[in-house]
Simulated scan of single mutants.
Amino acid sequence: MNDEEKKIIISRIADYHQNESGEYQRAPVSPLNRWLTYAMLIPVVVIMVFAGIFFFAAFLALVAVAVVAVGIRFWWLRRKYEKTMQASGDVNRQSGTDQTVIIEDAQIIEESEAPHTKPKK
């Protein structure tokens, strides 16, 4: 095979080829080939759109489940906190009638004795 035959084969395979002035020109594409390319791309685009919709819906479902789980957790903590506050409110009400006051989680910083005064009669 001589050099001229190789140039012809390469020219037909390549999409762009260089003319005599050094500029690249696009090889002409027949309208039939262009329409066949579009016809083959239509099913690919449709499949990609459906796959995108499916994955978006799956992601949206996961986000919804996560939001519900976090909401339930906050509701549970709030409920627990309110029960604790009601229980501490009951202790304070009972301490008003009884003379015993129970203080939990207190820390003694400094001990000192208060001066005792005799009650006036």
Rank of each mutant, 00 (worst) to 15 (best):
A14W: 08
D105Y: 06
D3Y: 05
A114W: 01
W35Y: 11
P31R: 03
M85K: 11
Q94A: 15
S30Q: 02
T84E: 14
G89I: 11
E111T: 09
M40L: 15
E23C: 02
P119T: 08
V68D: 01
P28T: 11
R12C: 09
Y38H: 12
G22K: 00
A51S: 07
G96W: 13
R79F: 14
G52I: 00
E113K: 15
I103D: 01
K80L: 09
N33R: 10
V49Q: 00
S95H: 03
I108F: 02
N19T: 05
E113Y: 08
T97R: 13
A106R: 01
I102M: 01
V49C: 04
I109V: 15
D15S: 12
A51T: 07
A14Q: 14
L32G: 02
V44I: 15
P28R: 10
T37C: 06
E20T: 08
F50A: 12
I102S: 04
I109L: 15
A114R: 08
D90H: 12
R79A: 12
M48E: 14
D98H: 06
S112G: 04
A57L: 11
S21F: 14
L60R: 15
V70H: 04
I103L: 13
Q86E: 15
R73K: 12
V46L: 12
E110V: 13
R12Y: 10
D98Y: 06
Y81L: 13
V70Q: 09
W76M: 13
Q18P: 00
E104P: 02
V91P: 00
I72D: 00
A58G: 00
M40V: 09
G71N: 07
D90Q: 14
T97Q: 10
A69F: 04
L32W: 04
T117P: 01
W75F: 13
V63A: 05
H17N: 10
A61H: 07
R79T: 09
D3R: 12
R12E: 11
V70W: 07
R78G: 14
F55Q: 14
I108Q: 03
L36F: 10
M1T: 07
V91R: 15
A57Q: 13
F50I: 13
N2K: 04
D98F: 06
V101S: 02
S30M: 00
K120D: 05
I53H: 00
P43D: 03
I13V: 13
K118M: 03
G89E: 15
L41W: 07
V44R: 02
Q99A: 10
E20R: 12
T97L: 13
E20M: 07
Y16F: 15
I13G: 01
A87L: 12
N2V: 01
Q86T: 10
S21H: 10
A27C: 07
K83P: 00
D105S: 04
S11T: 10
M1K: 09
Q25H: 12
A106H: 00
V67C: 03
T100P: 01
Y81I: 09
E110S: 06
S112W: 05
